[in-house]
């Protein structure tokens, strides 16, 4: 089963809408609560990143028999050094974002912690794709 969501990059207040919808859908499908929790946290952090750093993007969810695959794609500025970005505490977020409770360099480590597979593909000036898998 495949789901597709658009993330609006204009409004920070709306960030998390896609994650909320995905969570609701997974609940309706009767997916185990620990799996839903992992996916909700990972996708929410990724969605926040997409709004903070890029101008929104798309989220595609593929519910397979043994796992749930999620791809978040944006056409933002890209990540110059992914290893550095993965480091806990490293952040390029603005003070405005920090005031909202994010941007402390915890997003990507949080995504990794809550996924069974994580792949980040990024090109500067082109965009970033975050692929997440959580096993069922």
């Amino acid at each position: 089963m495949k789901l597709h969501y658009e993330v609006d990059g204009e409004e920070f207040a709306a960030a998390g809408q896609a994650s909320g919808n995905i969570k609701k859908m997974l609940k309706q499908l009767g997916i185990a609560s620990d799996v839903i929790r992992k996916i909700s946290i990972a996708v929410y952090e990724a969605e926040i990143n997409m709004v903070i750093h890029a101008d929104g993007g798309t989220v595609d969810v593929d519910i397979q028999t043994d796992k749930i695959y999620i791809a978040l794609k944006d056409t933002g500025p890209g990540i110059p050094n992914i290893d550095l970005a993965m480091r806990e505490g490293y952040s390029t977020a603005s003070d405005e974002v920090r005031d909202l409770g994010f941007g402390a360099g915890m997003g990507l480590p949080n995504i990794q912690k809550n996924s069974d597979f994580l792949k980040i593909t990024s090109a500067v000036g082109v965009g970033t794709t975050v692929e997440i898998e959580v096993n069922l």
Partner: peptide, 26 residues
């Protein structure tokens, strides 16, 4: 989000933006 917080929890915070509610929802 990184902690142990789950359904039987209450969050105390000084932040009042919508992302606090979203975080609680997740």
């Amino acid at each position: 989000l990184a902690g142990e917080a789950k359904e039987e929890f209450v969050l105390l915070t000084g932040l009042v933006n919508p992302q606090v509610i979203r975080t609680a929802e997740m």
